[in-house]
Amino acid sequence: MPSSALPTEARAGPGSPAQLFWVFSQLALAGFGGVLPIAEDRLVRKEGWVSAQDFLETLALAQVLPGPNICNMAIMLGDRFHGTRGALAALAGLLLPPLLPVMLLAFLYSTWADSAVVTGALRAMAMAAAGLILAMTLRLSKALKHPKSDGLIACLMLAALLLLRLPMLYALGLVGTISLGLAWRRQSKRKG
């Protein structure tokens, strides 16, 4: 039986869109520097709305779609439990409550922008963020199915953006055609 046939019956999901909003707003507000690990802890272990495997499968799909992974996951899980209203509730919970601390931080920064201490802190934090992005990139690259060809495609993408300074859409179109072509050939080889 396909697992999607009984998405909610085996487990007790959120009772209402309001509960989705509430839980997603809580994990968003706790998510300094990244919401995903906190979401996993809350949704899988504490609330038990989804299994760990289900969480992983949803994340895999969320990652190949445009948009922030965690936003896409909120939409997918919300939709599964309570349809469009559930999707909107989860997304709103994720995005709206944290706006207040975000703007507060930005205002504080704009007031103290002349202070060398504050600019130093923010500039160093930006550099730390860059380091975190690069580490995450390397971690994800290890999950690629075909290290050689996929690694080459990733490097082509890097070269197109950083060396050739192509606009992203051109780079995506150019390298994406190669990548999808390779993936399609592999797929049809396996089938035929």
Partner: peptide
């Protein structure tokens, strides 16, 4: 096909 592009974009 999209996975390696994502890695390149993030890098």
């Amino acid at each position: 096909g999209l996975a390696p592009l994502t890695v390149g974009l993030m890098g």
